[in-house]
Write a protein that binds this DNA or RNA. Structure first.
Lengths: 145, 145
DNA sequence: CAGAATCCCGTTGGATACTG
DNA sequence: CAGTATCCAACGGGATTCTG
């Protein structure tokens, strides 16, 4: 809940906002991103983008490794945010289906860039980690040290 | 100069395909994403993308609201992953400068899509949240709405 | 100035048991 | 089947203090 005064002077090299310097907008976007960037939201989006429409148990199986508690929590939050649609069939035994909304799909597409980035640079990242482990003092210091 | 521009605006399909592709790749990408999707990494990237090169205290001030401990941890992890370069000047008082690597900048660009998405859909999200609070039983059955 | 070390609390999240 | 409720361990992360 800190209201960080982000007296930002955003140069044109950072494309988001394109001149927007509203700290409130900044905080809002920040909150949204931290919301969707949790452990499971993007995985649920990916799974539903692949399979279209899934029941609770199916969804859990496809996501993989998620506990029932967290899947429920994640999916409810996503429903509240309008990312997915939850359809309850009033029958016994219960049947609940989940599918993405248009906004949810668009988020998946937007996040695709990050996914591709991770795929593309994963070797570099692993190499950097190895190098960091063996040589933490690899600083490029011009002139001394 | 900018060879990492991929210009992915409308991916035809998820890069994993409809069927399960490499699960190991999937796990790797998942790990990378969960790594960068913490509370501060993207904000550090944004700040360094704006200001180019900053010392530790400057970086903390520009990011805003980050504790020294978390900034240190975040920045070390980013260095290990090759996202930024940490330059130590062996002098008294110490001087440490941080700037993004090419990979770090490309991550900022990739993440830009998500940022734009959050800006574009924030009103929809807030509206959905309000609707969810007032009417958690929005649409349950197909045909009842 | 840039951090390392310590303390401490709130949240996350898993495992389990129970219910309609 | 699709949850809810509860307990509890692990982690995140802020505030503070200390050091080279």
């Amino acid at each position: 809940m800190n209201d960080s005064m982000h007296a930002v002077t955003r140069p044109p090299q950072w494309p988001h906002g394109s001149g927007q310097t509203d700290p409130e907008l900044d905080r809002l976007v920040r909150e949204i991103i931290s919301r969707i960037a949790d452990k499971w939201t993007m995985l649920v989006i990916e799974t539903l983008a692949e399979h279209g429409c899934l029941r609770f148990t199916q969804l859990a199986a496809q996501v993989g490794g998620v506990s029932q508690k967290m899947l429920t929590k994640t999916v409810r939050q996503m429903e509240a945010d309008g990312l997915l649609l939850r359809t309850v069939y009033p029958q016994v035994p219960p049947k609940v289906e989940y599918r993405l909304t248009e906004i949810g799909m668009s988020l998946g597409e937007a996040f695709c860039g990050v996914w591709l980035w991770a795929e593309r640079h994963r070797h570099s990242i692993e190499a950097s980690r190895q190098a960091y482990l063996t040589q933490p003092e690899a600083d490029a210091m011009p002139g001394s040290r």
